[in-house]
């Protein structure tokens, strides 16, 4: 079976700061693996190591049996990468962008041109193939880059926060592309949009401060948490006595209770009776992330100094 295996991957920078700290896991190399974490958690560092762009300080990783540290040349035949904050080069057109990338991968001009045409047709951008990238929208530019790596025929795709900064429609279009892609490729996706991971991923990996906090299917990740339900009380400052579970106060000032099915049933009955406004949902990935990492996904490092959440 094709797998991605990381053994004690560590990456240290100057002053001893560890971006990754003895990261070890093994997952099937199929579908989408979404690596989630806050800014600076180590997602991009992990991706760049696996994509042979960055050497780890120690540890090894193999993908489908190929050692990404020692056998980078072989690995590069198998992978295509969409880096974080990558942009389609302004002075090229979408056709030229895809064509030149495919030639870098070794294809000859005519084959690359044919594939580029097909790729643009696949994303519905044939009419824009000769428009300068500088004149395209942010979403269109990103689609051109995704189409480039799709056209490469590489079986393993790395995409680093591909939807950051995109409008909801462009984001949805890109999600559709990734959904199609995962049927035939292994996609390594990093994101800090938990909704994205929840919608797309077959396997989810939670990283915080360079350490692995959990990995598995969404079902398996749910088991990291002993609670199944999340109740939000839509009245600020409302105090609730709970028998089982944990209560937190979100940035919006509303109290949120993570609890068991039985306690959720009891509390919701009580709130209905007392006419307390509330919402109840199964634990989302965001709730689970908070429970595991003890910080919300969008919390900045600086927030620790001021204690904005608690």
């Amino acid at each position: 079976m094709e797998t991605l295996v990381c053994k004690n991957i560590t990456k240290s920078y100057e002053k001893g700061k560890k971006a990754l700290d003895r990261l070890s896991f093994s997952v099937p190399a199929k579908g989408i693996l979404a690596v989630i974490g806050r800014n600076g958690a180590g997602k991009t560092t992990l991706m760049r190591i696996l994509a042979t762009e960055l050497m780890p300080s120690s540890g090894t990783a193999t993908m489908n049996g190929i050692d990404v540290v020692k056998d980078a040349v072989k690995m590069r035949e198998m992978i295509a990468v969409l880096p974080q904050e990558s942009r389609a080069v302004n002075w090229m057109t979408p056709l030229q962008t895809i064509l030149s990338y495919l030639m870098y991968r070794g294809m000859d001009y005519s084959e690359a041109r044919e594939k580029a045409h097909e790729a643009l047709a696949g994303i519905g951008m044939t009419k824009l193939e000769k428009t300068l990238n500088s004149k395209l929208s942010g979403g269109q530019k990103r689609k051109v880059l995704v189409a480039s790596i799709l056209a490469s025929d590489a079986p393993i795709i790395f995409v680093d926060e591909p939807t950051t900064g995109l409008d909801p429609i462009s984001r949805s279009e890109l999600w559709d592309m990734l959904k199609r892609l995962k049927k035939t490729h292994f996609v390594f996706l990093t994101t800090h949009y938990l909704e994205e991971a929840e919608k797309l991923a077959d396997t989810i990996c939670i990283i915080d401060e360079g350490k692995l906090k959990g990995i598995g299917t969404l079902g398996e990740i749910r088991k990291l948490v002993k609670y199944q339900y999340s109740i939000k009380i839509l009245e600020k400052g409302k105090k609730v006595k709970i028998n089982e579970g944990e209560e937190v106060t979100g940035e919006d000032g509303f109290a949120q209770i993570m609890t068991t099915e039985k306690e959720a049933d009891r509390l919701s009955s009580r709130f209905i009776k007392e006419k307390v406004r509330f919402s109840i949902n199964p634990m989302s990935l965001e709730d689970i992330f908070y429970y595991v990492v003890k910080k919300p996904i969008n919390a900045e490092e600086e927030a620790k100094d001021y204690g904005t959440w608690f």
Binding site: R48, R76, A80, P83, E85, Y101, G106
Partner: peptide, 12 residues
């Protein structure tokens, strides 16, 4: 453009 990163991870 992060273009070189795309090329580093390619067979070039």
């Amino acid at each position: 453009f992060k273009y070189q990163d795309m090329i580093v991870s390619s067979p070039t």
